[in-house]
Design a protein around this nucleic acid. Structure first.
Lengths: 157, 157
DNA sequence: CCGATAAATTTTAAGCTTGAAATAATTTCC
DNA sequence: GGAAATTATTTCAAGCTTAAAATTTATCGG
């Protein structure tokens, strides 16, 4: 996955950052794969569906398709398909709005709420387990660094 | 993307790790999306193809399909398709082996080597830019933490 | 009011991804 | 040697993903 550093490397050039990126990507893919597999096995669902349910659970009043897309960092068209499937599973409902007929408010159904709560409990446990190798101190430090990275990034677009 | 912590949270429970996981995932998706877009725009290629080329560049003697799959953390069937496309682009070649006719050695062509070298140069620069918000010290610390996380993980399977 | 522009969403085509089933070749073990 | 198990790969169906085009509805400037 992605290339090892090519440049010959005096300290401070792109090499350290490339190495960091490779490790970041491997870590997140490893965890993601494990979570995906467990969601499939235990709840017969997928990570994208879980992510949509999680977003909607945070916003009980509902979200627009474009809110979902922006929040989840995926394309508009992508969300359409995932929500379609969740609707057909009865976990989510679209409600046309009087104000603006282009948009629809997407919201969890009661079945969606209770399905998500079960999954979220297990999910939180799994993440705790999968990141168990990290001490509490490192966990918080890592989280803080990643937070500031995100903010830095967002500033510049 | 993934749920915010649900539990009410005494320090040291799963909450901190869940928060870390969410940030890790958001960071890697953000960077990944930007790299994907630039690979498309500048080189008319994709991240999975770039990843395969990068693996093969590291192992100039070639890799089995299963080596690629294991190294890239993706499924076997997935690699088949990506390599097929790279072969049809002339960047990669499959060579049947005399010893074991189930396997084939996949290797970069000359065109593949020079295409990859161009991309890798740009790629390294992009990563440097995208992670630019992090100081050198943080970069190295973060990388060290992620490395030890990976090893911890790998020990337990 | 009406045409142009913008905004929200869906559709489409191409490619990525997985997990499982199918193929093919090798190895193991009587 | 030959059946059975194992290994490497491909094929397949379903779903995820993107970027771009198309659709539908709102808004804005005459």
């Amino acid at each position: 996955m992605v290339s090892a550093p090519l440049s010959t490397g005096t300290p401070g050039d792109g090499k350290d950052r490339l190495r960091l990126w490779i490790r970041l990507l491997r870590a997140s893919r490893t965890i993601e794969a494990e979570l995906r597999e467990r969601l499939k096995r235990e709840f017969d669902t997928t990570l994208p569906r879980f992510d949509v349910l999680a977003s909607l659970y945070r916003q009980q009043e509902g979200m627009l398709m474009s809110d979902l897309s922006r929040f989840l960092l995926v394309s508009n068209g992508n969300v359409t398909g995932i929500v379609d499937r969740l609707v057909s599973e009865g976990l989510v409902a679209r409600a046309r709005r009087n104000g603006d007929r282009r948009t629809s408010m997407v919201r969890l159904t009661d079945a969606g709420v209770s399905a998500f709560e079960k999954m979220a409990m297990a999910h939180e446990g799994w993440v705790g387990e999968l990141l168990g190798g990290l001490g509490e101190e490192d966990t918080r430090r890592l989280a803080a660094m990643l937070k500031s990275f995100r903010s830095n990034w967002e500033e510049r677009e």
